[in-house]
Measured scan of single mutants.
Amino acid sequence: TGEEYIAVGDSTAQQVGDLTFKKGEILLVIEKKPDGWWIAKDAKGNEGLVPRTYLEPYS
């Protein structure tokens, strides 16, 4: 379980453990880390770190 967020920009994984996503994708945020990198899952079930500045709450 988690909260749904929509990507407001494209982000390409810079290192192992990062999640690549495109603008408009809905991501499920699993954990919000205080350093600004959140753990999220995409629609295909891929999981990784995403920069919170690229996400907005999805409603």
Rank of each mutant, 00 (worst) to 15 (best):
K22M: 08
F21V: 07
L27W: 01
P34S: 13
D10W: 04
T12Y: 12
G36T: 03
T12K: 12
L49T: 11
K32Y: 05
A13C: 12
L19R: 00
K44L: 12
Q14E: 12
T53R: 12
S11L: 15
L49R: 15
G36W: 03
T12Q: 12
G48I: 03
P57R: 07
S59C: 14
T12G: 09
G9H: 15
K22S: 09
K44H: 13
V29A: 02
I30H: 03
L55E: 03
I6D: 01
T1F: 13
E56V: 11
I6K: 06
W37E: 06
G45P: 00
Y58C: 10
Y5N: 01
I39N: 04
K33S: 11
G36P: 03
A40F: 03
F21R: 01
V29D: 01
G45Q: 04
S59Y: 13
Y5P: 01
G17F: 05
L49F: 12
Y5A: 02
K32M: 07
L28T: 10
T12H: 13
I26T: 05
V8Q: 06
P51D: 15
G36Y: 03
E3R: 08
D35R: 01
P57G: 04
L49Y: 12
G36V: 02
D35E: 05
D10T: 07
L28M: 10
K41R: 15
K22W: 06
S11C: 15
K44Q: 12
L28W: 12
A40Y: 02
T20I: 11
V50Y: 01
E56K: 08
I39Y: 12
Y5H: 05
K22L: 09
Y54R: 10
W38F: 06
Y5M: 05
V29E: 00
L27I: 07
E25A: 09
G17S: 07
L49C: 08
V8P: 03
G9W: 15
E47T: 15
V8N: 09
G36Q: 04
W38D: 01
P34I: 09
G9M: 15
R52Q: 13
K33L: 12
S11A: 10
V29M: 02
Y54N: 09
A40K: 00
S59Q: 13
P51Y: 15
V50G: 02
L55I: 08
I39L: 14
K41S: 06
L28Q: 07
L19T: 01
P57E: 09
W37T: 10
A43F: 08
Q14S: 13
P34N: 12
Q15G: 14
L27C: 04
G48K: 02
D10H: 06
G24S: 03
S59A: 12
I30L: 11
D18K: 14
K23L: 06
R52Y: 13
S11R: 15
G45W: 02
V16T: 11
W38N: 00
A7P: 01
Q14W: 11
F21L: 04
Y54D: 08
G17K: 06
G48M: 03
P51G: 08
V29R: 00
Y58G: 05
Y58I: 12
A7C: 11
P51V: 06
K33Y: 10
Q14I: 13
D18W: 15
T1M: 13
K33V: 06
K23R: 10
K22C: 10
K44E: 11
K41G: 02
A7L: 04
T20L: 08
L55P: 01
R52W: 11
F21G: 00
K22D: 04
K44R: 13
K32H: 04
Q14K: 12
T1W: 12
I30Q: 05
I30K: 05
K41Y: 06
G9T: 15
Y58F: 12
F21T: 02
Y5D: 00
E25P: 00
L28F: 11
L28I: 12
T12V: 13
P57Y: 06
G9Q: 15
K23I: 08
Y54H: 14
D10E: 07
A40H: 00
T20W: 07
Y58L: 13
E4Y: 15
Y58A: 09
G24C: 07
P34M: 11
G45C: 05
G24D: 05
K33D: 06
R52A: 15
T1Q: 12
I26L: 07
A43I: 09
A13S: 14
R52D: 11
R52V: 10
D18T: 14
K41A: 06
T1Y: 14
N46S: 06
D10I: 03
P57K: 10
L28A: 04
G17D: 05
K41N: 04
I6C: 07
T1I: 13
I30R: 04
L55S: 00
G36R: 02
E47S: 10
G24M: 02
T53K: 13
E3V: 09
I26V: 09
E56D: 06
L19W: 02
W37D: 06
Y54M: 15
S59T: 13
K32P: 03
E25S: 07
D42V: 02
E47R: 09
D35M: 03
P57T: 05
P57M: 06
L27H: 01
D18L: 14
I39Q: 05
T20A: 12
